[in-house]
Amino acid sequence: MRPPIAQLNHQCPAPCRGAQRLLAIAISASVLLGLAATADLTLRSARQNDSANSWMKAMTLSAPALWPAGSPMRHPETLHPGVDLRFSAGLVAAP
């Protein structure tokens, strides 16, 4: 049964609740995600990946380990036009 007009007078005939909800979701999701990313960035910048840097220095390594061992990109000091990579220390001599 529909409410009488007197009650309607105190209501909102065009509340657009769904639209207001959509606005609230859009704003809060953006703010929350933005804050989460900012917080993570701040914490991450405090950490700075010091341990990898420390081991680089301690072992006097020439390059990071992004490529497989034995490749010239992994060991840039072995890449010289006059030096055949096959004759690096420890590698079995090529036939």
Partner: peptide
């Protein structure tokens, strides 16, 4: 860049006719 900052500036390797 951070990692390479820790690497030595120069590496000297002895070479001969056979290589390293």
């Amino acid at each position: 860049a951070r990692l390479m900052d820790q690497a030595p500036d120069l590496v000297v390797r002895r070479i001969d006719a056979g290589g390293w």
